[in-house]
Simulated assay, not measured.
Amino acid sequence: MKPFLNVIFTIDQKFLQHFSAAIVSLLENNRDIDFNVFIIHDIEKTETLDNLVQFIKSKYNVRLNLIFLDNSIFENYRVSLHYSKAVYFRLLFTEILPKTIDKALFLDSDLIVTGSVKELAEYQFKDEYLLAVDDAEVTSHVERLNKLGFPIKRYFNAGVLLINFKAWRADGVAGEFIGLANQYMDKLEWWDQDILNMYFYNGWQPMNPKYNAIHLRKKLPQLPVVVHYAGPSKPWLYIHEHPYKNLYWEYLKLTPFKNTKYQDYSFKEFIRKGYIKILNLFHLRPQAVFKDI
């Protein structure tokens, strides 16, 4: 019998293309797992999403469940950079997902799965709330949340989470999350991720970093199971480089977005990228000298 695993994605219109590469990479590399996938979204005109769902169902024979959530309920919540208020959907998982779910794998949409997640599908929780990858490079986040009164010793990245929903529901975490958000909204830098770290500061266990490889500056000796394009360097942006940028485009070719090109490509960006590469060879910092090109 195949191992079974619930998987959750949260998406918005801007990340629909990237989600397609993420879910196809998961399914391509885990044909020996029986998945039940939940897609929580705020997309009102769903024609493209519906077509993508039908494509995935027909190609992989997988269960996909669409759950619409109006993001206006987070009207007073802050976001910035390339993020949308869909990041806060994680705070309501216990309220919008079936009560029969005891365990699920949450995956961000800006990642590629390159190998098996069978170990996670077969993992048996004890009393921990979740498994996550320790983001050891962001000690400043530990210090920041310590100043708010939370005795955090480690800060985890919330892009890949193996969640113990049985424990979450027992503690009524959704109400606690919203309370923290309302109290500390002006002091949050990483929004829902901060909230999860604040609440679960002593209730999570570290996951093998291979399941959420972040802050990558060069290729690793062994290909990670999950390459997470966390941060501003996204593989779909021409100007940005990532050691595993090609993986995103390889899996995107297996989706209905296979003919997509770089949206930010221009002659100006071509020149800028060459300029940055040259400066990097000499370990110099690029200057903003192309504004008039």
Rank of each mutant, 00 (worst) to 15 (best):
Y123H: 08
Q193P: 09
R169E: 01
N212C: 13
W168M: 07
W191C: 10
F150V: 15
R144H: 11
D127E: 15
E122T: 15
V117G: 03
N182R: 07
G175N: 10
A132K: 06
L188R: 01
I214C: 11
E128D: 12
A167G: 02
G203H: 12
L145I: 06
Y201P: 12
L131Y: 02
R169L: 01
W190T: 15
G159L: 10
P209C: 14
P206L: 05
F156C: 15
F150W: 07
R144N: 02
L196C: 04
N146L: 13
P209G: 13
M207P: 10
A174G: 04
F125M: 01
R154G: 04
E137R: 12
I163E: 00
V160E: 05
I152W: 03
Y201R: 11
A213E: 06
L120N: 05
N157R: 09
F177P: 06
Y129S: 12
A136R: 10
V117Y: 00
F165L: 15
V142Y: 06
L162T: 08
Y201H: 15
A170G: 02
E143Y: 01
N164H: 09
E128F: 11
S116K: 00
F165Q: 04
V142M: 08
I152H: 09
E122P: 08
G149P: 06
V133D: 09
I178G: 03
A174T: 15
N157V: 08
V160I: 14
R169G: 04
L162V: 03
N164A: 04
I163Y: 01
D134H: 11
K187E: 13
D194M: 08
Y123N: 07
D135V: 00
K166M: 00
K210S: 15
D194R: 01
I195T: 05
R169F: 03
F177I: 09
W204P: 05
S140C: 05
G115A: 13
E189M: 05
